[in-house]
């Protein structure tokens, strides 16, 4: 292997690793706050990428209708669960958030598709469409069983993953989609070429990590989320609303998923079910980070990307086997070195 191939593989690995890092961060975030191992994270990637690709092609994406449907389901759920305390104000507020907002997004999307304003607006619109699905999903599937065991939450997450993959097939069809790159700039660095797309991925990943760091370290909402993650009962006693923390975590996860999707759809053809395997790699990184550490997760994700790139070059058939087998020694080491015992579940 000469140095050009080495550099190329390294670049490829780092690019994929950056995406895995974003997803790993989202998984850590959701798990820490809600104890849900968020299997459907990958679906947000697919939804985001496909929505963006359709907008770029000048078509109205199905997700714009999907968000209305999710909002209506969450609205119905909210009314049923709070039927004893229904008041005009409550209904009006819920209707605004769960019916009004998605309808507004739908009309906005129609207007944007008609106007064709360009990639940046499409990116923002994609996030606006996909992001609300996160909190609606939390309201419908997870909030009613927020106190259940990790196992029950996980199985529920699998159910959500199956349903969302199926819904993805309905709205996007079985055909794969690809979008033109957001930037066509190229930057030769020695023997290899770094595209604007690559740089964009690095920049956005780094920016999101910094933003998350500031959010959790400097804002009261972020601190409330961390408090929830550390001690749910304690957080409740000081007045932090668990349901709200859950919704924020899921919103962030949806946003991160959508951004990841937008970033990769110009590089690889996305299908309605591609998200799962991409999410899984992020998951590997999140596990190496022990589902608690953000910096470790980001570093692990880059490593996973690089290992995968080299594994696919040397033994492409065994790429997945290698990546997932390498996880076992890592888990063992973490089990031995982690201070937490298995005394209290």
């Amino acid at each position: 292997m000469d140095s050009t191939i080495l550099l190329f593989l390294l670049q490829d690995g780092l690019t994929n690793g950056a995406i895995y890092a974003l997803l790993g961060l989202a998984l850590v975030l959701v798990f820490a706050v809600t104890r849900v191992i968020f299997v459907p994270q990958g679906e947000f990637v697919a939804y985001g990428g496909l929505t963006f690709a359709l907008l770029e092609a000048g078509k109205l994406p199905g997700t714009a209708y999907m968000v209305v449907a999710f909002g209506a389901a969450a609205f119905a759920m909210e009314l049923v669960s709070r039927r004893r305390e229904l008041a005009a104000r409550l209904v009006a507020r819920e209707a605004a958030f769960k019916l009004g907002l998605p309808l507004a997004i739908l009309f906005l999307a129609k207007a944007v598709v008609a106007a064709q304003p360009g990639a940046v607006v499409n990116l923002v619109l994609t996030i606006a469409i996909v992001a609300p699905i996160g909190p609606y999903l939390y309201r419908v599937a997870f909030q009613p069983i927020a106190d259940a065991s990790v196992l029950v939450l996980l199985i529920t997450a699998v159910g959500v993953h199956l349903a969302m993959t199926g819904i993805g097939l309905v709205f996007f069809g079985a055909e794969g989609l690809r979008a033109p790159p957001i930037s066509s700039a190229v930057l030769p660095v020695g023997p290899i070429v770094v595209t604007g797309q690559n740089l964009g991925i690095y920049a956005i990943t780094a920016a999101l990590i910094v933003a998350l760091y500031l959010f959790f370290g400097r804002t009261i909402t972020g601190k409330a989320l961390r408090a929830t993650a550390i001690n749910r009962i304690g957080a409740r006693l000081v007045g932090i609303r668990l349901a709200l923390s859950g919704r924020i975590a899921f919103t962030l996860a949806a946003v991160i998923g959508a951004v990841s999707g937008v970033l990769i759809v110009p590089m690889t053809t996305l299908y309605y079910d591609t998200g799962f395997l991409v999410g899984l790699k992020g998951f590997v990184a999140a596990i190496i980070g022990g589902l608690v550490s953000y910096p470790l997760t980001a570093a692990a994700a880059l490593l996973v990307g690089v290992v995968e790139a080299f594994a696919s070059f040397h033994a492409s058939d065994w790429k997945e086997v290698i990546v997932f087998t390498l996880l076992l020694p890592v888990l063992l080491i973490r089990s031995w070195t982690d201070p937490h015992s298995d005394e209290e579940e």
Partner: peptide, 15 residues
């Protein structure tokens, strides 16, 4: 559609 329904049923049963 059966995957969707199965996934939803799974969520409902556990709730």
């Amino acid at each position: 559609y059966e995957t969707i329904v199965f996934g939803l049923l799974l969520v409902v049963i556990l709730q």
